[in-house]
């Protein structure tokens, strides 16, 4: 089976600044592939190029076997999109939102109307056909947006930060639904900057920074390959001074952020013994996770 999406050496500049600087990746059918990166890394621009909503300066894109942007409309017949910001139609109720959107795919009213109860059921909105949009919570709107993206029964689902702004309950429900879709054989491309989301959902992911892919692999591979196996976080007023004088003896890498010191190491025992003599410092020993990889590769400075 062909890759649902294949991107080769994609370039895109805005006003002389290269936002996407030559990235390549391909999705395997049935997998969830994540694009991770800080704000401004080029994730959303990459998605826009892949959907044919903006013309790249260079590179090749094949979306569900169609060249993009040349045949982007044909490709979008088999793609569902959940955008970063809700753009449901505030003038319509839930069912009308789905009906009107299905028409954009050239689907007949009868076909769409037959699908609406199942779509709402899937989104946890059963019986809400007539509910006006303003009566829905943020989580319900997100789920309706997901249902809308499924109205054409797409092969590939593209989600741009699907759980940003949602409470934990709502996020878990979205994750559960995305897993169901994967189990049903759909392919998912998602962008996120939530590491737990990426670790839970993505079979493979790419970490983007400054328009480039700086690492690619499964979450487990990235953690094993890019970073030491465990982390000791040390807190307290005296932590920065302790880091400067002692931490380097025990840890392979030490990073200080305010009054917190992150010590990356494979064998934590000697460092923990040292900390045992310093009651003024508090500490937390944990296995390294995707966030550690992310911060190592993209740095700690703020991106606005």
């Amino acid at each position: 089976m062909n890759a649902p999406l294949r991107v080769l050496d994609l370039h895109k500049s805005y006003g002389g600044r290269e936002v996407v600087a030559g990235i390549s990746f391909a999705l395997n059918p049935g997998e969830c592939y994540g694009l991770l990166g800080p704000n401004g890394a080029g994730k959303t621009t990459t998605l826009r190029c892949c959907l044919g909503l903006t013309t790249p300066d260079g590179g090749d894109i094949t979306l569900v076997n169609e060249p993009v942007p040349q045949r982007a409309r044909e490709a979008r017949m088999k793609v569902g999109v959940v955008p970063q910001f809700d753009n449901l139609d505030p003038d319509f109720n839930c069912a009308e939102n789905l009906l009107v959107f299905g028409r954009y795919f050239g689907l007949g009213d009868d076909t769409i109307k037959a699908r609406i109860p199942d779509l709402l059921e899937f989104a946890g909105l059963a019986g809400k056909e007539k509910a006006p949009l303003r009566s829905l919570s943020g989580g319900m709107k997100r789920r309706l947006t997901l249902a809308r993206a499924l109205v054409n029964d797409p092969d590939l689902l593209v989600l741009d930060e699907p759980t940003t702004g949602l409470d934990p309950q709502a996020r878990h429900l979205i994750w559960d639904r995305l897993k169901q879709l994967l189990a049903a054989g759909k392919t998912i491309l998602l962008t996120t900057h939530f590491m737990d989301e990426a670790e839970r959902l993505c079979h493979r992911l790419a970490i983007m920074d400054n328009g480039r892919i700086v690492a690619e692999g499964s979450p487990r591979e990235l953690i094993a390959g890019e970073i030491e196996s465990s982390v000791v976080e040390v807190f307290g007023e005296a932590a920065p001074e302790w880091a400067a004088t002692h931490a380097g003896r025990y840890a392979k890498r030490v990073e200080t952020s305010g009054e917190t010191v992150f010590c990356y190491l494979d064998d934590a025992a000697p460092l923990l013994t040292d900390l045992g003599h310093r009651p003024e410092l508090r500490s937390l020993h944990r296995p390294a996770n995707l966030e550690d990889v992310f911060l190592k590769l993209t740095g700690r400075e703020l991106r606005d």
Binding site: L53, E74, M77, V81, P83, F85, N87, D89
Partner: peptide, 11 residues
């Protein structure tokens, strides 16, 4: 409302 953006995600 970004209605046009939503429509452009369809074919």
């Amino acid at each position: 409302q970004k209605t046009w953006d939503a429509i452009l995600n369809a074919p």
